[in-house]
């Protein structure tokens, strides 16, 4: 399934004193099976952009096409769009409200009119994906820990069997262990064939997981490409107040000191290999 965003602009409170341009002429296409990272400083329009993808916000101008069909044209069921494109909000645990974990995960499927058996089946599948203990299903969501609750919330979206999963800072506020678990889950989901769009402030995560990066700044799309391309655009990244992964900065500094390491290193493992390779050619005398 593909999503095509064409010349999308959004203005909040148009025609009032507090009118604000949130997005200006944004265009890009999401192909089936991609893993895309959406980055940009606070207030750059990331959240506004993803709310357009499943029809929560209506563009001021421009269109959003899902499988070639404008989602705001007549006869398109927004409910169906929202099923296909699952949107996980930031701090999704705050949307939990049911008496039991099971009922909360089942909220989406029930809204879609699934039969009780189908509901049961999709809740079970979602529970397994996020790695939630089965006995937790009968507990009250308000008894769970932050990390567990986050998984319940993500499972609530997964239970609707989305084809595209959009996540706004899914790891925000979690401890390192919870962070790794949720990101590994997302990676597994992507491997199972789901298209993923990940909004994140953490450049390490984005560099490690994503095949393609979109950079938003002040409501405009200023870069769109593979992580290696984007993060080596040193000036561009610095000028908007973002930071490439730490290891990329280390490599850059090493080069400035005369090491002939590659600059487009994105992960610590890669960096390790590069330094070893360099030491091999230069000899141990350097250290």
């Amino acid at each position: 399934m593909s999503i095509e965003v064409k010349n999308l602009s959004h203005i909040y409170m148009q025609g009032t004193l507090t009118e604000a341009f949130a997005l200006t002429d944004v265009s890009f296409t999401v192909e089936d099976g991609e893993f895309i990272g959406l980055i940009g400083p606070t207030g750059s329009g990331k959240s506004t952009l993803i709310q357009h993808l499943n029809g929560l916000l209506k563009p001021t101008s421009g269109t959003v096409l899902v499988d070639g069909v404008d989602i705001w044209s007549k006869g398109v069921s927004l409910k169906e769009i929202r099923r296909k494109i699952g949107l996980v909000f930031q701090y999704p645990e705050q949307q939990v409200f049911e008496e039991t974990v099971f009922d909360d995960i089942a909220f989406g499927p029930r809204n879609l009119g699934y039969s009780p058996e189908e509901v049961e089946r999709s809740v079970e599948a979602a529970r397994q994906v996020v790695g939630l203990d089965k006995e937790l299903l009968s507990r009250s969501p308000f008894d769970l820990s932050g990390g567990q609750l986050r998984r319940v919330a993500v499972a609530g979206i997964l239970a609707m069997n989305p084809e595209v999963l959009v996540l706004d800072e899914p790891a925000a506020g979690l401890d390192p262990k919870g962070r790794k678990e949720i990101l590994d889950n997302i990676k597994k989901l992507h491997e199972s064939g789901i298209t993923v769009i990940l909004v994140s402030h953490n450049m390490e995560d984005v560099a490690y997981f994503c095949q393609r990066i979109l950079v938003l700044y002040d409501g405009t799309l200023i870069a769109d490409g593979a992580p290696r391309e984007v993060f080596t655009k040193e000036k561009l990244i610095d000028s908007i107040g973002l930071k490439p992964p730490e290891v990329t900065i280390v490599m850059r500094k090493l080069r400035q000191r005369g090491w002939s390491v590659r600059e487009d290193v994105l992960t610590v493992e890669e960096g390790f290999e590069e330094i070893l390779r360099c030491l091999g050619t230069k000899g141990v005398a350097l250290i």
């Binding site: 709310q51 499943n54 909000f89 949307q95 979206i157 609707m160």
Partner: peptide, 12 residues
């Protein structure tokens, strides 16, 4: 925000 989150889960 919560309304939008629930609408994303098919709430009407």
């Amino acid at each position: 925000r919560i309304m939008k989150a629930q609408m994303s889960r098919g709430a009407d």
